[in-house]
């Protein structure tokens, strides 16, 4: 049985760190073009962040 409280903690913490990552990556790209995009596709980080956000909404509805 999945512990919903633990799952919610993971989902929230992932959401925060991914939000921070997107903000930092975008800022870095503005200041130094190419330094992030050469290695990280920010689109995938954004998609992951959105999926995480959707799971948080679903987890809150099941509460």
């Amino acid at each position: 049985m999945v512990n919903m409280d633990n799952l919610r903690i993971y989902l929230y913490e992932f959401f925060y760190v991914l939000a921070g990552a997107i903000a930092i990556f975008v800022l870095l790209e503005i200041v130094w073009p190419g330094v992030v995009l050469a290695y990280v596709n920010i689109n995938w980080v954004l998609i992951l962040w959105l999926i995480d956000g959707i799971f948080i909404l679903l987890a809150n509805r099941l509460k």
């Binding site: 913490e13 992932f14 925060y16 760190v17 921070g20 990552a21 930092i24």
Partner: peptide, 8 residues
């Protein structure tokens, strides 16, 4: 939180 931000 510490683990994830350290990885980032």
């Amino acid at each position: 939180r510490i683990f994830l931000w350290t990885v980032l």
